[in-house]
Design a protein around this nucleic acid. Structure first.
Lengths: 254, 254
DNA sequence: CGCGACTTTGACATGCATCAAAAGTAGTGG
DNA sequence: CCACTACTTTTGATGCATGTCAAAGTCGCG
């Protein structure tokens, strides 16, 4: 990457003591790396494209479904949930988002955000303005290539996720969920075996398509089996291999 | 679209009397439309990019997972299933594909196909060679834009699909499946209320994450309720509104 | 016409949703 | 700092949907 680390990393230091992703581990880094490759971009220009660090307080929306698309966001610290509404007004959780991950990808084609996104705790994001980016004719093609890469990867992930969970039983889903969270944190060099479940049980249940009572019971069960330790929102993965095994499909090779 | 219809439609006429999508209704049309917009492309050039009509016999694979990616395919006639294997060797159905739909989209970033694709009946496809396409520098950016559009749309569809089916009961899933098939056929101007289920019950079951017996029973039930008429692989949707209602999420607004 | 593969039907077991209520947690004001 | 209320989570009891096993029936191909 031609982008110098300091250029992206000169953030004020972690004032809230929350886990915060380093710029080098952020999803935007790849995208911007390409943009800045041609060296033509001055720090001022980069500055313009990447609006650093907006804060979003717990319970606030970063954006809402239907709002016009104006750029991608990367989670800098904290966590978010994306959700839509079923007819009947009930919230349906689409996903959770952690430091280093991108928000708004599925909206690039449609000019409007597809989901609402809300902070699960006090959080911060970086914004990548598309308007500015489109003006950079020279680098635009490379940027597009990055986007295609990200998107087609997303399609793949989505399909795999869907294919799995539809076949999984409740405990398998939950195990897969925990392992999934853990690996995503690990990917960005964040604490991966002990962390806070910032979302409510209701959110987890909705995301996994389970009843809230089932989530509660199964977490209990996992604890009894020595797979995890839960204490309200704090969770510790004790037996990751065990969880990983559970998360796989059942009954194939007896 | 600057592309003249005849240019794409001079195919030999339907020799097997199978439903065949018109080029104007094909997913490749949009992609190619953009490529040919700059008028610079001669028919010979188009010919080179778009290898028309390969035949794939029932049970044959168009490609297999892991094979190097060499281009997109569009289904011209017939139908396909895409599948991967669970550990244990069991086939897992990822999707079904009908005339006018694109195959291989999720592979554009990875240089290898992610799934295997097999013909469910004697079928034909058109191939869009990427190698040739990449040489067309002038139009490449527009092509990329099309791709981004297709991909981000795909992400959206995938997410919606997944979000729904994970929450749906067996009959809702099956209703949604039938309505889904029907609308996809309709979209391409093909017979939408009476058609052949070219895939086996096993395939349907695997795709929906149900037991094959459940699929059988529920189809029976639908027939009893006058929603559909099934006779082995032939199916007729009688009460589409009824099915559509069933396919929605349950119990929200009583 | 007969064989193997696919599909339907029936009986049964169980995983999970649902309903109801208790226990825990957090936020608020005296 | 504690009491009070409202919300979230846990626990228990029950019923139904759907997976599983077994067997009969049907289709399609040689």
């Amino acid at each position: 990457m031609a982008l110098k680390k300091e250029e992206l990393q000169n953030q004020e230091s972690c004032q809230s003591c929350k886990a915060e992703v380093a710029c080098a581990n952020c999803g935007l880094y790849g995208v911007l790396g390409v943009v800045s490759k041609l060296e033509q971009s001055t720090p001022e220009h980069l500055e313009k494209i990447l609006k650093k660090r907006q804060t979003v307080l717990k319970g606030e929306n970063l954006f809402r479904a239907g709002q016009p698309f104006n750029g991608l966001y990367a989670v800098k610290s904290g966590s978010f949930k994306s959700y839509s509404f079923l007819e009947g007004g009930q919230e349906q959780i689409v996903g959770f988002h952690f430091p280093g991950e991108l928000l708004g990808l599925e909206a690039v084609s449609s000019t409007r955000y597809a989901y609402s996104v809300r902070a699960l705790e006090d959080s911060s994001v970086c914004e990548l303005s598309f308007e500015e980016l489109e003006l950079m004719q020279d680098n635009y093609q490379q940027f597009q290539e990055q986007l295609i890469l990200l998107l087609s990867n997303q399609v793949l992930l989505e399909q795999r996720q869907c294919g799995l969970s539809i076949r999984q039983s409740a405990d398998e889903r939950l195990a897969a969920f925990l392992i999934g969270l853990s690996s995503r944190l690990e990917e960005r060099q964040l604490a991966a075996s002990e962390f806070r479940l910032t979302m409510s049980r209701q959110d987890i249940a909705s995301y996994l398509g389970l009843a809230i009572e089932t989530v509660s019971r199964i977490l209990k069960l996992f604890q009894k089996r020595g797979l995890i330790a839960v204490q309200s929102k704090q969770i510790k993965l004790i037996d990751r291999p065990g969880l990983r095994e559970l998360a796989q499909l059942p009954g194939s090779t007896p």
